[in-house]
Design a binder for these strands. Structure first.
Length: 510
RNA sequence: GGGGCGGUGGCCAAGUGGCUAAGGCACUGGAUUGCAAAUCCAGCACGCGCGGGUUCGAAUCCCGCUCGCCCCUCCA
């Protein structure tokens, strides 16, 4: 199967082949850990997970690495003059307030003034959320790299860049990358140095420009002993620029100068990824840093940008715990199954606008339900029988064809959802097919390693009792009582349905 | 101002030159059910932002217009 991906570097869809057959090496720009990651962040991370799982579906071995940006950066890094508030300091203030209000659990952050503890707190929150949503790399601690643990590698690369004439120490003592030393600067984002110079003219102040050779030159290291996170270096005690960590960690962990795929949100195309390319290629001399640059479009919520003021700024926990707003701007209070959120965030094409809505969540829930019910039927029918299938199976062939076409998830769903309404002649084979499908989608169930979702706690046995009582009332034709019991079960947040085996209560998925 | 992406049924959305324009949700009718839910069957776009053009043939290619979104500044 020919896999085709859209490559931002060439603005075209190209056939994907790995640099080396044995392994696909991919790097994803991960979160900053000054706050909880929101669902827009996770759309991008899930997009990367989908690439990885798709490649694995087609038999590739994939080494996927993601970074955690835990270095405190100035909110206004571009100025390199230390202006603006450090994000880690801002996070410390917020955590202190949240500790008072109880939003941060007791003992989670001992000392909010210690930036490493703040970073640690949000890093764990991120990884927990990522695991809930089935992002594979989150389970691989060796492949989650923290910037603060790789400062020495960054310093090595900065030295190398200075030695090779790509970087210099400015009049202000800051180490800058010289964009004019790298002829391909601007290739990824479609900018030219001239355009950047003009575009910058109304933004940069004269004193800042005076320290740089070109307005687009960017910071690699800034000496600043007052910075909240700081390390010793040949250029003074301070902190690294925000682009250098990815260049270094990708090369270090993936072990190659040229990797196969680099992913991120569309906003990272410029300047972040442009700068990464300049750094990496400047340091290695290679003709490329990543062969494929792939970017996910921004997520909209209710037709607009997420904003805290509009109240439609959702973290993963907000969605799962029922804090999505309904038509009346009230929280729905309905818990959402992680698989539903996962599907909602991957079902639209990654290069088109995705609009997150309550309705969409409910649509996704119905698909998840159809697939999980289908699995249950197949498991019941197949018994202990297990068979192997390969990708030549008609369903897998069509499913794979859609995915291989630049991750056409909608097309893939169009293949499998109607199939899930059928009754296959060979349930064991169908189950094997579903497993292969689920190795990519990971929604039915979310984690293919654990069985079906277990409904734990929450007066589950009470509900069981009520269902029995309902059945008894129905058997006695006491319909008034039966209806009252049903209302009671529904009021507890369950959906009630009548099956040949009696009344069953289920929690809605969204 | 520069760069990129897109406008397909009430909603989400596939389809990028040629059968009756996937699929899901919603909706309508029927079966079933004490009722409801679930399930099953059936129905539901003569048209693909607007106007031209190319072609035997276009939602799909070309030109113009229009609307929307994103990036160019911290941001996934």
């Amino acid at each position: 199967m020919t896999i085709r991906f859209y490559n931002t570097l060439t603005n075209s869809t190209e056939e994907f082949t790995p640099v080396e057959d044995d392994c696909v090496r991919m790097y994803s720009c991960g979160p900053t850990v000054y706050d909880f990651a929101h669902i827009g962040n996770f759309r991008s991370f899930l997009f990367a997970d989908l690439i990885r799982r798709t490649l694995e579906f087609f038999g590739h071995n994939v080494h996927h690495v993601m970074n955690i940006t835990d270095v405190g950066h100035m909110t206004d890094d571009s100025n390199a003059d230390g202006g603006g508030e450090d994000k880690m300091e801002a996070a410390a203030k917020r955590v202190k307030e949240d500790k008072k209000s109880g939003k941060v659990p007791e003992g989670a952050v001992e000392n909010p003034d210690n930036p490493f503890q703040i970073a640690d707190y949000y890093t764990h929150a991120f990884l927990d959320d990522a695991k809930l949503l089935g992002i594979k790399v989150a389970f691989e601690s060796d492949n989650i790299l923290k910037a603060t643990e790789n400062i020495d590698t960054m310093q090595d690369m900065i030295s190398l860049l200075i030695d090779r004439g790509h970087a210099y120490v400015g009049a202000d003592g800051v180490v800058y990358y010289s964009v004019e030393s790298f002829s391909d600067y601007g290739q990824l984002s479609g900018n030219s140095l001239e355009e950047l110079r003009e575009g910058a003219s109304d933004r940069l102040n004269a004193s800042d420009q005076a320290n740089k050779r070109h307005p687009a030159d960017f910071m690699l290291w800034k000496a600043d002993p007052s910075h909240i996170m700081k390390w010793d270096s040949p250029w003074g005690t301070g902190y690294p620029g925000w682009h250098i960590e990815c260049s270094c960690m990708a090369r270090k962990r993936l072990g190659k100068d040229v990797i196969d795929i680099h992913t991120g949100g569309e906003d990272l195309i410029f300047p972040h990824h442009e700068c990464e390319i300049a750094q990496s290629r400047g340091a290695t001399g290679a003709e490329a840093f990543a062969r494929f640059w792939m970017h996910a479009r921004f997520l909209l919520v209710d037709g607009g940008k997420m904003s805290k003021s509009k109240g439609n700024f959702y973290t993963v926990r907000d969605v799962l715990e029922g804090r999505v707003l309904d038509e009346n701007n009230e929280p729905t209070g309905v818990q959402v199954h992680p698989a539903v959120l996962r599907l909602e965030l991957i079902k639209s094409h990654y290069r088109s606008n995705m609009n997150f809505t309550r309705k969409g969540l409910q649509d996704s829930a119905s698909i998840v339900k159809r697939l999980t019910d289908f699995r249950a039927r197949l498991e019941a029918a197949a018994g202990d029988e297990r068979v192997e299938v390969d990708l030549s199976h008609p369903i897998l062939a069509d499913f794979g064809k859609a995915l291989a076409d630049d991750l056409n998830v909608s097309g893939a769903l169009g293949v499998i959802v109607p199939w899930a309404a059928t009754t296959p002649d060979n349930p064991a084979e169908a189950l094997a097919v579903l497993d292969r499908i689920n190795s990519v989608l990971a929604i039915a169930p979310l984690d293919s390693s654990d069985g079906d979702s277990s409904d734990n706690g929450d007066g589950e046995s009470e509900i069981q009792t009520l269902c029995k009582q309902l059945d008894e009332a129905r058997a006695a034709k006491d319909y008034a009582t039966a209806d009252a019991i049903r209302d009671q079960i529904q009021a507890a947040g369950f959906e009630v349905k009548t099956t040949p085996d009696g009344t069953v209560a289920e929690r809605p998925l969204a």
